[in-house]
């Protein structure tokens, strides 16, 4: 009897997890659809780029947090993966500014 009960409990936990998976899927789909809408309605510019980058980060948060389960890992693992990424952002901004400078000098 104890075994049956345990099995039942496992299945319930799985159902909850499956619900979270599908919710994440719908969120990702909605953001992608919204990106398309913005791509064809908003004028190109800083605001549009900022919205796209923001939405990408939200999507990345859901993929890494839910699908890759990082949200539920220990804090030291989360930080040891996030902190190196800060340097990537730094490099990206630095070299885009550098590119603008190269353009001005040419």
């Amino acid at each position: 009897m104890a075994h049956v009960h345990e099995h039942e409990h496992d299945e319930n936990a799985g159902a909850e997890q499956r619900k979270a998976i599908w919710r994440t899927f719908w969120i990702l789909l909605a953001i992608t659809a919204l990106e398309f809408l913005i791509a064809f309605t908003l004028e190109a510019g800083i605001l549009k780029t900022a919205i796209f980058v923001g939405m990408t980060i939200v999507k990345a948060f859901y993929i890494v947090g839910e699908f890759m389960h990082l949200k539920h890992e220990v804090k030291s693992l989360i930080w040891s993966l996030l902190i190196p990424c800060i340097f990537v952002v730094w490099l990206l901004i630095a070299l885009m500014r550098e590119g603008g400078s190269i353009f001005d000098l040419r």
């Binding site: 070299l95 885009m96 550098e98 590119g99 353009f103």
Partner: peptide
């Protein structure tokens, strides 16, 4: 991707 950003902004 960073290299892409650099070249794009310098073009």
């Amino acid at each position: 991707l960073v290299a892409y950003g650099l070249v794009r902004f310098s073009s």
